[in-house]
Design a protein around this nucleic acid. Structure first.
Lengths: 357, 357
DNA sequence: TGACGTTGATCAAGCGTTTTAGCAAAGTAA
DNA sequence: TTACTTTGCTAAAACGCTTGATCAACGTCA
């Protein structure tokens, strides 16, 4: 047992011990060094409000902590408190796109803000991996799990997920009572179309995707809503479809040019990228001969096309953050529908004011 | 106390209790249900090799576990075992680029493979956040920490990081004895140049970056090595510099055309993207009038340019995975230099065979 | 003087596991 | 029968921490 005199008299010696890896300093050791009980140390470490500890003792403990380089053991802490400070995030594709990264980022920031750490797992779409990942999280007694997909889609709820408190991020389930948060595709589509309308365009084509997805329906719906709000009758001729990638956009160009429009709203940025090439091949320039807006705001594409592409942003960061808030019960969760997150517009220079015809 | 008959006689009733959230099932409860001691349950849960448990008991326990939906508490487990199954990953920019995502992905896969879970934190370059993140990881008694940056660069080692077992990923320190893993820029530069050489090009320009970085030096070095190996004297005129983005590439075009070369190797894909535009403006076509290779393999760019860009891949996934292996001591770590990871070439169609002059 | 209230700190139980030592019962060998 | 080994299982300590109960010492008030 170290006497009080000793411990306060030789703080220097202790300071040399530094982090001698292999034997983390414990509460008890701090207590011994400071000549107090572990209870006391715990009290000062946690700054308990109603703890009555004298100034001297407090200082003695603080010094011991510093000298020894004490770090509380979070495991032990959560063991006794019963509730862990973890939130799990299972993603189906971390690396494939920058999107997942944004979800992680948003979730991490928000979790952090509320004192939670993020435990992540990547399943790459593999069911077994997914099951293992969820088990792992369950064993770490996570506060809850964010189940996310890299593109907006309906999803099955894995059985083991039900054991936890969970919310779906960027995906949804038809099962009643499931909390989910997704991008507001329709609003995004409306916004995209409105950019064009606001610049005076009246004949606006929409090149939708050929493959079914919530985005396909939502983005079209938004287009229709915006036109209707502007008092422009829908011309079915102007709604085209193409495979949602660069190739698709490129190949859609000739058809588009037959439609006699001054502006196009593309299902996504990659398609717009192809369209840029297609229009250039036809000697047309953007935005003078044709205004173009995309969707997704894939930075690497949209910001670097020439001219930079006006588009609508998929709010992945917000999706992650909102997911966390919903999980923690900080955000209202409508019982029978997914929460829809706003898709903000990002205006660059691919749209110019159109003189009225 | 539940008698043995009861517990094995009424598994059905128990099965209905399912996950009654709020009170995780513990070892003790399983033990009671199965009519055995917690020690026994622990033994069967962990499949201890030298445990002597009768087949009947084993089954009784297994049934109880299933009926109750028992999940071991990983916290308690690591508390007693002393070592946690966590590896921390602190990144300076999760969302900014797809790159960080790949590092995470690689680290996660590899960690998983060895039974570790990944705890991630994003610092967005903020020193305080970084410190907090590391503290958090330390408190969770992580096995070690991967400290990663989104672009290859030298870095300071944060003080708190020293308290942990750590390895630098995609960055390095001049401090001796620091483990680090980085991309092999020189080899990448060599490979990039070799693609061109292999296709018969002799006058090959290199547009390097203007801003200093390990990549700048390494990629140039590789260029020189490849030329030398091919017996081509270095023409300093052919080494140009431009700001490493699309704009820079575009603007470098006129200068490049004065050099009378048949091929260019660009510092990165974004530069190459700009160069594509520049060349097109001059009525030149790729790869017929000019062969182009990039560096980084930024999928969204490289794969979707027309023609698709041949480039060299930055091995972020491997960087993450190797970092984990190094941390766990599964991979040799040279004492005074960073481990260099191969940058594989990705050949697409921006280079065509050049008829000898 | 005694009854109380405060102050400053400690005790000890408990969180959910693992694990070593040990014990009772059954089997085996002589 | 005795002595020993094996089998099957349990008791209990330990891991590092939190926290309600307790307590001694010291005022304070009537």
């Amino acid at each position: 047992m170290v006497s009080k005199e000793k411990s306060s008299g030789e703080p220097v010696a202790a300071a040399f011990l530094k982090p001698e890896r292999g034997h983390p300093v414990t509460l008890r050791e701090v207590a011994e060094a400071a000549g107090v009980s572990t209870a006391t140390v715990s009290l000062v470490v946690n700054n308990k409000k109603d703890a009555r500890i004298s100034v001297q003792t407090r200082k003695r403990v603080r010094d011991a902590i510093k000298d020894l380089g004490y770090r509380p053991n979070a495991m032990a802490k959560t063991l006794v408190s019963g509730s862990s400070r973890f939130i799990g995030l299972v993603a189906d594709a971390i690396a494939t796109t920058p999107f997942a990264g944004q979800i992680i980022h948003g979730a991490q920031d928000e979790a952090w803000r509320h004192g939670y750490a993020l435990l992540i797992a990547n399943t790459e779409g593999n069911g077994d991996l997914e099951k293992d990942a969820i088990s792992m999280m369950l064993e770490y007694k996570v506060r809850g799990i964010l189940y996310s997909t890299w593109f907006h889609r309906p999803t099955e709820i894995p059985e083991s997920l039900r054991e936890a408190d969970f919310v779906l991020v960027n995906c949804f389930s038809t099962e009643p009572g499931t909390r989910a948060v997704v991008p507001d595709e329709a609003q995004g589509g409306r916004s995209a179309t409105e950019i064009l309308l606001r610049h005076g365009h009246r004949r606006i084509a929409f090149i939708n995707a050929t493959i079914p997805a919530p985005a396909k329906d939502g983005r079209l719906e938004g287009y229709k809503e915006a036109l209707e709000a502007a008092g422009i009758p829908l011309d079915p001729e102007l709604v085209m479809e193409a495979y949602p990638d660069q190739e698709g956009g490129y190949e859609a160009t000739p058809e588009l040019l037959k439609r006699d429009v001054t502006a196009v709203y593309c299902y996504n940025d990659r398609m717009a990228m192809g369209l840029y090439d297609g229009l250039r091949d036809h000697g047309l320039s953007i935005p003078d001969d044709m205004a173009v807006v995309g969707f997704d705001n894939q930075e690497v594409i949209a910001a670097h096309l020439r001219p930079p592409l006006s588009t609508v942003s998929l709010p992945h960061y917000e999706l992650g953050a909102a997911g966390v808030r919903m999980l923690l019960g900080l955000e209202e969760a409508p019982s029978n529908t997914a929460v829809k997150i706003n898709c903000p517009t990002v205006e660059r220079t691919s749209v110019r004011v159109q003189a009225p015809a």
